[in-house]
């Protein structure tokens, strides 16, 4: 009898929170629509598959935002955006040859300036947009790894640093065509990162990122190394 009461109480509590959760995600969707996020971001798949489609992309796809990002990052970013990709979503759209040298021409910043309340609701909704096929639990936070080896992969053998910015003794170094990685660990979902670096074209067929053939151990080292980059 006691168990029945307890079960009822639990079910009642769940029933109370469920509509709130659904309402939160629903409200978030409305906020995203009202703020015209879909003007720049693709909120539904598929991703760009042709060069022309890739060129027309103004901002990263968000239809798998829940797989890609950490919720806390989305809450902060949607209130106060900053430039993650120094040369914009696709550098080709923001680079000009000036005096024989290619230079980045002020890529636009995300226009989102949500209030904290809206940012929380919008992020809650974005976190529901997931790729059901992404493997979960691949990245093990805090797992020990050979940092020197991982750094060698990052800077030498795969040379990610050629296109991605990182921080070295407080200074920003690295290429500007890719997304900056110095806060990747507080921005990205480790499982998504692990999947993306193995096969970027699964997520974005027109990604300018090459595809490397590394062993499982090296992929895990690289994932851990990048996920340790936090601000």
């Amino acid at each position: 009898m006691k168990m029945t009461k307890l079960t009822c109480l639990i079910l009642f509590s769940l029933a109370l929170t469920l509509p709130v959760r659904i309402a939160a995600a629903g409200d978030g969707k409305t906020i995203i629509e009202k703020n015209n996020c879909g003007t720049c971001h693709k909120m539904e798949g598929p991703a760009a598959k042709t060069f022309a489609e890739a060129l027309s992309r103004k901002a990263p796809d968000l239809f798998y935002a829940g797989s890609k990002f950490q919720e806390e990052f989305l809450v902060e970013f949607s209130q106060k955006p900053y430039q993650i990709r120094p040369a914009g979503t696709l550098y080709l759209n923001h680079v000009k040859t000036v005096d024989g040298v290619d230079r980045i021409q002020d890529p636009p910043l995300c226009a989102s300036r949500l209030s904290k309340e809206d940012a929380v609701l919008a992020s809650k909704y974005l976190m529901t947009l997931k790729d059901p096929d992404m493997k979960i639990g691949v990245y093990k936070p805090g797992a020990s790894f050979f940092k020197i080896g991982a750094k060698m992969i990052f800077t030498k053998s795969v040379a990610c640093i050629g296109c991605h910015q990182v921080k070295k003794r407080g200074k920003i170094v690295g290429g500007t065509s890719g997304s900056s990685l110095y806060n990747a660990g507080s921005r990205l979902n480790g499982d998504w990162l692990s999947s993306y670096i193995r096969n970027p074209h699964y997520w974005d067929p027109m990604s300018p990122m090459p595809k490397w053939d590394l062993g499982e151990h090296a992929w895990m080292q690289l994932t851990n190394y990048i996920m340790e980059m936090k601000e």
């Binding site: 024989g100 290619d102 980045i104 290429g175 500007t176 065509s177």
Partner: peptide
């Protein structure tokens, strides 16, 4: 193709 891409300076 003149070798002056945006990633060159840090290479």
């Amino acid at each position: 193709g003149n070798g002056e891409g945006i990633d060159k300076p840090t290479m």
